[in-house]
Structures are given as structure tokens and as C-alpha cells.
């Protein structure tokens, strides 16, 4: 494999990049279970820090899971019918609409949060409620759901399948529930995992939208980085990794699977 100096250089760059990404991750895992990070592993391994994270931040972990689930349900209710309607009307207007709902991908979360705050910041019951953060999460994750479902729906011959169902007497809404949605399942699954993964990790919007009584997991992380000792911050990061890495892997697997149905 390493026939030429060029290959060796390529391998070196690849390994260096891997080290750059992996080393701090491992450090944080290690620091999270080390008694005293400054003294190193020889000070012993412990689950004490994880326990402290649990007492300090379990509420924020549960809030994040709750928000991710609500976000998933919302994006399913809003995104799947919308993807279907976009797939059924593949015109210029649909392209523009798709472009518009994709704006939250392009516009930084901070700017979106500012925009939301200026319209709804003074609506007291809403501003301090978890659903205000949820709106931000749905705004940010919705384009992923729509696109994921739309790409599968555009790839299957939805029009002919629906004509088949119509000729058998199926009314429009049954064609949606019996034909369009089940056959777009790989896209729905990939979209769902993306939505949950992104919602759990969302910080930029959430930081601006949250209140002191409503801290999500990443907000709690920022809090621990700023005010807790390194071991606790690391242990919290470790908890986050344990949640997010399986989700990320499932998401990549589901996306690859959805891609396969497209070819």
C-alpha cells in the first residue's frame, strides 16, 4: 500500500487529522473518570464525577431528551406532509419554498434566536416555557426532515404508485398514509435520527432562548466548562458522548440506507 512517498504523506496527514480529533476526545473521557486530572491516571479511576454530574445536571439531560422527542414529533407532523406536497408539485414554487425553509441551515442560530426573541420575547407565558426552545429546535431541524423524506419520495416513482392506488379506489389521504409514507420510511428514519441528534446537541439557538430554569444538555455543558472543575466538565462531556455517538452512528447508517434506496 505504501509504495510511494506521496502515499506515506497522505497517510501521515490522515493520521494526524485523526489524532487531532481523537486525542482531546479521549482526554475528556479519561479526565471524566480520573480522581485528579492534574496528577494523572495514577491518582486512580472513579465514577464520582459522573455521579456529581448526575446530581447537578440530570434535569438538563432529561430536558434535552424531552425536547428532542417533542422536536421529532413536531418535525414529523410538519415535515412529512410538507415533503409529500413538495414531491407532488415539483415546480419552481416548490423549489423556492424548499429554499426558504432551509434558511435556518444557512443563517447562524444566533441570528435566528435574535429574530425569534424580538417577536416573541415579550410574550411572557411563551418566553419562559420550554416550547419556546422547542420552536428554535424545530426551526433548525425541520429542513433536514423535509429533505431526507423528499429525496426518497422523489426517487421512488410516487406518481405512478399513486395512480395505481387511485385506480383501485384509494382517496387522496389514503394514498398518503398507505403508499407515500410507508415507501418513504428509509427517509423518515434517517430524517428522524438526524433531528434527534441535532436537537440534543443544539447550542447556538438554545443559549439565546433558554432561561435559567430551562437548561438543556449543551447549555449545561457550557455552564460546566465555565464554572466547574475540569473533571466534572469532562465527566459531563463523557455523558454527552455516550448519548450522541450511538445516535450519530445510527444516523449515518440510516442515511446510507436511505441513499441506497435512491439508486
Amino acid at each position: 500500500m505504501l509504495k510511494s512517498p506521496a502515499k506515506i504523506l497522505q497517510l501521515a496527514v490522515t493520521l494526524l487529522a485523526c489524532a487531532f480529533l481523537l486525542v482531546p476526545t479521549l482526554q475528556s473521557v479519561l479526565a471524566g473518570v480520573t480522581v485528579n486530572y492534574f496528577q494523572g491516571v495514577k491518582s486512580g479511576l472513579t465514577l464520582k464525577w459522573i455521579g456529581e454530574v448526575w446530581t447537578l445536571y440530570s434535569a438538563s439531560i432529561f430536558l434535552s431528551i424531552w425536547l428532542a422527542l417533542c422536536c421529532l414529533i413536531s418535525t414529523l407532523i410538519i415535515g412529512v406532509p410538507a415533503a409529500y406536497a413538495l414531491a407532488r408539485n415539483p415546480g419552481r414554487l416548490s423549489r423556492i419554498l424548499e429554499e426558504f425553509i432551509s434558511l435556518p441551515l444557512a443563517i447562524p442560530g444566533l441570528a435566528l434566536a435574535l429574530a425569534l426573541l424580538q417577536v416573541y420575547g415579550s410574550v411572557q407565558g411563551f418566553r419562559a416555557h420550554w416550547s419556546f426552545i422547542l420552536v428554535g429546535h424545530v426551526l433548525y431541524t425541520l429542513p433536514f426532515m423535509v429533505r431526507s423524506v423528499l429525496s426518497v419520495m422523489a426517487a421512488i416513482d410516487l406518481k405512478t404508485l399513486e395512480e395505481g392506488a387511485a385506480s383501485l379506489g384509494a382517496p387522496a389521504w389514503r394514498r398518503f398514509t398507505d403508499i407515500a409514507v410507508p415507501n418513504a420510511m428509509p427517509g423518515v428514519l434517517a430524517g428522524s435520527l438526524t433531528v434527534v441528534t441535532l436537537s440534543i446537541g443544539e447550542f447556538n439557538l438554545t443559549w439565546m432562548l433558554h432561561t435559567p430554569f430551562l437548561k438543556t444538555l449543551p447549555v449545561g455543558l457550557a455552564d460546566s466548562y465555565a464554572s466547574m472543575r475540569l473533571e466534572i466538565a469532562s465527566a459531563y462531556t463523557l455523558v454527552f458522548f455516550v448519548m450522541i455517538v450511538p445516535l450519530l452512528m445510527a444516523m449515518q447508517w440510516a442515511s446510507a440506507r436511505a441513499q441506497r434506496t435512491l439508486t
Binding site: 482531546p24 443544539e202 447556538n204 449543551p218 466548562y225 454527552f240 445516535l247
Partner: peptide, 29 residues
């Protein structure tokens, strides 16, 4: 290698910042 290189996709910016602190902070590697 591929998994390692795509791992940070799901990391929020705050976590990435912490990674850099672990590398180059006062208590950093």
C-alpha cells in the same frame, strides 16, 4: 479512521471549544 474523522459532526460548538481547552488550555495536553 473514517469513524474518527466524522465523529465531531454531532458535537456542538461548546464541546469543540472544550476539546481545544483540553489540548491547549492551562491544564491542556
Amino acid at each position: 479512521l473514517l469513524s474518527i474523522l466524522t465523529l465531531p459532526l454531532a458535537f456542538p460548538g461548546v464541546v469543540v471549544g472544550f476539546m481545544i481547552i483540553l489540548l491547549g488550555g492551562r491544564q491542556g495536553l
